[in-house]
Computed example of a mutant assay.
Amino acid sequence: MPQDTHPAIGVIGLGAMGRGMAGSLRRAGYPVHVFDVRAEAVQSFVAEGGVACASPAEMAQRCEIVVSVVVNAAQTEEVLFGDAGAAAAMRPGSLFVMCSTVDPNWSIALEGRLAERGLLYLDAPISGGAARAASGQMTMMTAGRPEAYDKAGGALAAMAAKVYRLGDRAGNGSKVKIINQLLAGVHIAAAAEAMALGLREGVDAASLYEVITHSAGNSWMFENRMAHVLAGDYTPLSAVDIFVKDLGLVLDTARATKFPLPLASTAHQMFMQASSAGHGREDDAAVIKIFPGIELPQAGRGADLSSPAD
Rank of each mutant, 00 (worst) to 15 (best):
Q3N: 10
T5L: 11
T5M: 11
P7A: 03
A8P: 02
V11F: 01
V11W: 01
I12A: 02
G13K: 01
G15E: 04
M17F: 11
G20K: 02
G20Q: 02
A22T: 06
Y30E: 04
P31V: 01
F35R: 01
F35E: 01
S44M: 04
A47E: 10
A52V: 02
P56D: 12
A57N: 02
E58S: 09
C63K: 00
N72F: 04
N72I: 03
A74S: 08
A74N: 05
Q75S: 11
T76G: 11
E77G: 05
V79F: 06
A84L: 11
A89R: 02
R91W: 03
M98C: 15
C99D: 04
C99E: 03
N105Q: 15
W106V: 10
W106S: 09
I108S: 04
I108Y: 06
L110Q: 10
E111K: 04
E111Y: 09
E111I: 08
R113L: 09
R117S: 14
L120M: 10
G128V: 13
G128E: 15
A133M: 07
Q137V: 05
R145M: 10
P146C: 13
A152H: 02
A155R: 01
M159R: 03
R165N: 06
G167I: 03
R169L: 09
R169Y: 10
A170G: 09
G171L: 09
G171R: 07
K175W: 07
V186C: 14
V186G: 00
I188N: 12
I188V: 15
A189H: 06
A191P: 04
A191F: 03
A192Y: 05
E193T: 13
A194M: 13
A196Y: 00
G198Y: 12
G202A: 11
G202L: 09
Y209R: 08
I212P: 03
I212M: 13
H214S: 13
S215Q: 07
G217Y: 09
W220E: 11
M221P: 01
F222Y: 13
E223A: 15
N224G: 06
A227C: 07
A227S: 15
L230Q: 04
Y234V: 01
T235D: 03
L237S: 05
S238W: 02
D246T: 15
D252R: 14
A254Y: 13
A256M: 14
L261S: 10
H268Q: 06
Q269T: 06
R281S: 12
R281K: 14
D283H: 01
K289A: 01
F291L: 07
P292D: 12
L296W: 05
P297K: 02
Q298G: 08
G302E: 05
L305N: 08
P308K: 11
